[in-house]
Amino acid sequence: MTGESQAVGLSDVSVLIPSSADEAVAAFGDGKDVTVVAGGTIVLPDLVAGRLRPKSALFLGRAGLSGIARADGRVTIGAATPVSDLADADAPLAEAARHVGDLEVRAQATVGGNLCSVASDDAPRGDLQAPLLALAASVRSTGKDGEKTEPLEDFLADGAGRLVLDVSYDDAPRQAGYASVWRPHTHHYTILAVAAAKRDGELRVAATGVGPKAVLVSPDDPLAALELRDDPLASAWYRARLLPRLVERALAILEGHEND
């Protein structure tokens, strides 16, 4: 009840500050009652306002887990890598990263946090999810039953409560396209964004802003099996009209005739 929640303050949250990836994995354990604080851009206001009151919090900022590596044919991005470090990443990831928040928020927000974020009532979140889905990325995470690596779409469907360690994709040439509609505030709030990537003839198209998290969509029938979100930025009706147009635009960019 109200009285109870007021009695529990930030001071009752114990904080774990691991200084290496191994320590972070051990401290996170099975993840029960642990909230991860990395960049803090989403979680910290919730903790301060008391909307979130975990038993313990794991602060990830001193655990390493940051950086972009190209090795063994893979591009691997550490969970604590700031979004601003993706400004020159591969397409269509870089363009989506440049649309997140603003300069200060991009420098604080992390890739792992973005992959774990769920749309709020007010606006979609997780702008990096669609481009990483298009790139056929895999997520390495730890938690209940230990470490596992799985396709991003599986992680988005079923990865709640796990600690992301890194995300990776094949370091290979691709055609790519990105198209988005956003509402200028102090932040760019993405209403809807479509990322597409084609490699060896295989085309993957994904959208951010359709639901709680990004999803893969069919390029031929983007609205198939989708339940579109309604929020203060845009109605489901509007999104249903926008999505096919954004898919067309992203594919035109991918094919190299964006000016048609």
Binding site: P45, G61, E104
Partner: peptide
């Protein structure tokens, strides 16, 4: 906004640990 080691950052979003 404050400068942290010279870079602009949102002090409302930064835990002291950071």
């Amino acid at each position: 906004t404050v400068l942290v080691d010279g870079e602009p950052r949102r002090s409302c979003l930064l835990p002291l640990a950071a």
